[in-house]
Structure formats: C-alpha cells, structure tokens
Design a protein around this nucleic acid. Sequence first.
DNA 1: TTGGGTGCAAATTCTTTGCAATCTC
DNA 2: GAGATTGCAAAGAATTTGCACCCAA
Lengths: 152, 152
Amino acid sequence: MVTSTTILDRAHEIFDAHLGVNKLRRTPERFAILKEVYECDDHFDIESLYTSMKEKKYRVSRATLYNTMELLLDCELVRKHRFGEQQAHYEKSLHHKQHDHIIRTDTGEVIEFCDPRIQNIKATLEDIFDLEISHHSLYFYGTPRGKQKEKV
Amino acid sequence: MVTSTTILDRAHEIFDAHLGVNKLRRTPERFAILKEVYECDDHFDIESLYTSMKEKKYRVSRATLYNTMELLLDCELVRKHRFGEQQAHYEKSLHHKQHDHIIRTDTGEVIEFCDPRIQNIKATLEDIFDLEISHHSLYFYGTPRGKQKEKV
DNA sequence: TTGGGTGCAAATTCTTTGCAATCTC
DNA sequence: GAGATTGCAAAGAATTTGCACCCAA
C-alpha cells in the first residue's frame, strides 16, 4: 500500500490555488463539481453533469454549474468543445495528454488522437503572423471505410 | 470585353443541380440567398444575412435562411463554423481555397491560413483508424506577441 | 393540382441574469 | 457582518417547429 497523489488531488490543488489567487470563495459546490468532473472519463455536457450530480444526491443549480465551468476553464482544468451541435461539451484536461478528436458522423462517437505535427503548424503560424497562440481546436469528421453515408 | 463565368454562376449551377437531383424546388428565395451568400466575402451569421437581405428589400424569413443554409451545406457551397460563441457562422466555400482559421482572442478578428500538413494528418488518421474523413475544423486562438491578456 | 416551401409566431434548447437567501472569509 | 455565491425562476439568444397559405413542377 502506498500513499499516492491522484489526479483529482492535483486538480484540487490547482483549483484551490486559483480560487485563492483570485480571491474567490472555496464553496463546497465548487469542489463537488470539480470532483464530479474529474470522476467522469468522458466528454459531458452541463445537463448530464447536472443529472449525474443530482442522482448522487448532490444538488447544484445549473447556474452554478455554468459558473464553475468558467472557473475551471480559466485555470485550464477543463476544456470546452463544440462538436457542432448546440450544446457545449466539456472534458477534464489535467494530466490528460494533449489530444484532438475525430467525430464519427454516423454515430457521434468521439475518437481521440494525438499528432505532433499540429504543434509544428502552430509554431509556423506563430512565426508567420507574429502571434502567441494559446490554444486550438481541431476536429476531423468521418465514418469507417465502406460505411459512408449514401446520400444522393 | 470577355464573357466569363463567375464563381456565383458556378455555385448557381451546382446548387441548381443539387436541387434537381434531390427533387427540391427551385424557389426564388433559395437563389436569392445563394446570391447574397456569394456576394459576401466575409464570415457571416444568420442574423446579419437576414438584415442585409432585408436592407436590399429582399425579405426572407429566418426559417428559410436556416433551411437554405442546410441545403447549401449539403452541396458544400458553404461551410459552417462555431468559433466558440453560441451562434453559428458561415462562409461561402466554392473555389475558396481550403483553409483554416486563427481567431484573435482579443478582437475576435479572423485570420485565414493554409497549411498542407493538415492533409497529411488527415491521411495518417484515415490509415490508422480505417476511416473516410469527410471534413475537419481547425481553429487556433491567439493574440499578437507582446499583447497577451494579463490575467491573474 | 398537389405536395414541397414560405413566413410567421410559438415552442424548444441552451445559457445567462436578477434577486433574495445563504454562506465564506 | 459584508459581500461573494447559490438556487430559482425568469429572461435571452439561437434555432426549430407547426401550420395556413402559396407556388413550382
């Protein structure tokens, strides 16, 4: 048996520090939400987060969820996505290797991948346009071979 | 003086064919919208399209705009974006060299760029995951050097 | 003529806001 | 205690839908 620091612990520290530095309050809701987010291994939206917390008898309002997600975005503990639908999706991002996504257009399934060439492109762009690029979003959309939509 | 085929002409042909093949009606609204879209050199949203058509005395309902954009997306005459806000943005896409975008996080300004390595990444992914990738969306977010946000 | 398309307004969906009550600091 | 934060419900913004009327085929 070993004592170990989990990713949630680490996230908790970062969040705690962020709250401290920005003089924000350490409310139980905020930490409960962080925990829920970090216990989820998938992408999720506000509604499903709301539901799963409610099921676990931890009731927070949607307003608080939206608020807290903003804080978590600020300290980069979560990432926000718009896969194309209306609603935003989120995923935890700490110690989660930088990656991008492929969205299956037939099922909506999300595949993660990692390609170093994206960093090269980023570096090139920073040089060409004299920019500081903070982040990016990249999605490829497709279907398994031999299973493309047979649209007219 | 020469007779030439404009991009709008070509788009018109493609749209016309698409409507024909799918047994959809060639209504004046649809062509008016196509024209408006192709006369716009920027990215736009439904609301601004609605307004600019209204100003030109061509009144179409928002519902028709949304409908028609779907058709134009189907035949790839426009591309749809979600730069991060709620509302979707569109841009004409015919004869518009494949490109991606950099969004300035300070001003919202959109810079277009083109990098062939993206096609390489796409090809790699298709091989690895045995997929047929139909399209992608890539955005880099950043600010000019020496002008980053000074957030705590 | 006839079913697809249009406009309008109402309905939905997702997110934000206002405000009284509550809880950190 | 003071002021930030919460929950709730109402407001907003973007998009979709229902339906009577209209028009392209």
